[in-house]
């Protein structure tokens, strides 16, 4: 079962509504989720940002950083809802994910076994030592 990582550690997924790929954007009902991949253009979501309940941003590989810009972009379009990074994200990237606007990270059990909860909790202090927030504020 998927593991959801937040500042409080590991938990289970409580998002019960369907999550649709970007191709099905026209069929998204209020409160449903949408998923985008690295090569997708989040601008396509601008019209529905007020009604979706969750946006999942897929990370097929930890060293493909496009998802970080997608998160920042989605927030800059005014999206204030739930934003989740999904896939191959490392504990060491948790602070980066939170800082660009993700609320949580979803990983699979094998990654969670190799990088257990304490390694993620070690970066729950992601607001500390944050140069960009200090410069932007």
């Amino acid at each position: 079962m998927a593991i959801i990582v937040t500042d409080k550690g590991f938990t289970t997924d409580d998002f019960a509504s369907p999550v649709r790929p970007l191709a099905e954007i026209d069929q998204v009902q209020d409160g449903e989720g949408v998923e985008i991949g690295p090569a997708d253009d989040p601008r396509a979501l601008v019209g529905v940002l007020g009604q979706v309940g969750l946006i999942r941003v897929r990370f097929p590989a930890f060293n493909d950083g496009r998802g970080f810009s997608h998160a920042r972009d989605l927030r800059s379009f005014g999206y204030t809802g739930r934003l989740r990074a999904v896939g191959h994200v490392l504990a060491d990237q948790y602070a980066m994910a939170r800082r660009v606007g993700f609320d949580e990270v979803e990983i699979d059990e094998s990654l969670g076994a190799r990088q257990p909860e304490d390694q993620w909790l070690a970066r729950a202090n992601w607001r500390d030592n944050w140069y960009q927030a200090r410069l932007r504020a």
């Binding site: 060293n63 950083g65 970080f68 990237q93 602070a95 980066m96 800082r99 140069y131």
Partner: peptide
Amino acid sequence: ELIRQWSTDHPEFQFL
């Protein structure tokens, strides 16, 4: 120096 501070640990640009 301003650029050094800004670029240090920049969360969006560690995996360009």
